[in-house]
Computed example of a mutant assay.
Amino acid sequence: MPDYSKVFTYEVEGLSYTVSLYEENGVVMGDIEVLEGAMDVNAVYFGDDEFSGPSASLGGPLNMNGARLDGEKIQWDGTAVEKSDPGLGPDGTDKETYVEAGDTLTVSLEGVALDDIDVLGIRATSTTTEEGSIKAVSDDPEEPEDPEEPEDPEEPLLEKVLFGTQLDEAGGVIDGVAIVGEPREGYELSLPEGQEPTFENYLSFYENDVDGYDVASLQTIKFYEFHPDGYPVEIFSIDAPEDGFQSSEEVLAAYDEAIEAGALEPAQEGAELMAALSLEETGEETETVEEETASEEDLEVA
């Protein structure tokens, strides 16, 4: 769709249309779109808001004699655009300049600048108005707002990411780096203050700020949120392909794929449930979690 600059409207009983102006290769163009009814567009006139000097006019039935704007005679600028003679002729409603609701007719308004068009007129016959013809005048064009760009989806904010570089036979991480989004007791590494805890930022920190580790050595990446009692709960993980990750872009692609597949949805549902129920942990359950947490926090020294 063209980038419209001005939109003129006209509405009477039985007929309504818009004329949307834009510039193409230095020439002003107008899309005449019929919203209701139909008409045979015979001529298009245009002018600025200064009604002085000679007025452009087409002879015979294509003239705009008698057209007024708020009771004032209009001075049309430049050369009016002739599109067709009145009468549908043998083509009937198939005539090129005959437009019905839903149709658009494009016209070229040469020799004028967009800023100089404040009033627009259309001479049309075979209209669906009571009179059967119009000498229509439109002013006060709207300036279309820029279409809003679709907002980028919000990046998930993560509380803890564990980059695992060595696994035991059961798949547990025995070497790697755990990073939290903000300083937390028991954790050596956290993102810089003020940095959003998105996965891209975690990965950049792992690559650039942690010595002795790189993307190629990754075997798994585990993602956590913290329970209200303070211990981490794994929400999902992504594993490296058989030949390992070849670049950070490949890691991010694997993460995006997991998110799009709904990796975070069960975690969000679980968090809502925990908040609603406010369950208390038993002594046996707490002991188990503490043992698991301790084994993970041994990995904090990188």
Rank of each mutant, 00 (worst) to 15 (best):
160 K>E: 15
160 K>S: 14
160 K>G: 13
161 V>H: 07
161 V>L: 05
161 V>Q: 07
161 V>P: 04
161 V>G: 09
163 F>L: 02
163 F>A: 05
163 F>R: 04
164 G>I: 06
164 G>F: 04
165 T>K: 01
165 T>I: 11
166 Q>L: 07
166 Q>D: 09
167 L>A: 00
167 L>W: 01
167 L>F: 03
168 D>K: 01
168 D>S: 02
168 D>W: 04
169 E>R: 10
169 E>Q: 10
170 A>G: 08
170 A>M: 11
171 G>I: 03
171 G>C: 03
172 G>K: 15
172 G>W: 12
172 G>Y: 14
173 V>H: 05
173 V>M: 10
173 V>G: 02
173 V>Y: 06
173 V>T: 14
174 I>S: 01
174 I>R: 02
175 D>S: 10
175 D>W: 00
176 G>P: 00
176 G>K: 03
176 G>L: 04
177 V>W: 01
178 A>Y: 02
179 I>D: 02
179 I>E: 06
180 V>H: 04
180 V>Y: 04
180 V>S: 03
181 G>V: 03
182 E>I: 07
182 E>V: 12
182 E>R: 13
182 E>D: 12
182 E>P: 00
183 P>Q: 04
183 P>T: 06
183 P>F: 04
184 R>Q: 10
184 R>I: 05
185 E>W: 03
185 E>G: 09
186 G>H: 01
187 Y>T: 06
187 Y>S: 10
187 Y>M: 10
188 E>V: 14
188 E>G: 05
188 E>R: 13
188 E>H: 10
188 E>L: 14
189 L>I: 09
189 L>H: 15
190 S>T: 11
190 S>E: 09
190 S>I: 06
190 S>K: 10
191 L>H: 09
191 L>R: 10
192 P>W: 14
193 E>C: 05
194 G>L: 13
194 G>E: 12
194 G>I: 12
194 G>V: 12
195 Q>A: 15
195 Q>H: 12
195 Q>G: 08
195 Q>D: 15
195 Q>T: 15
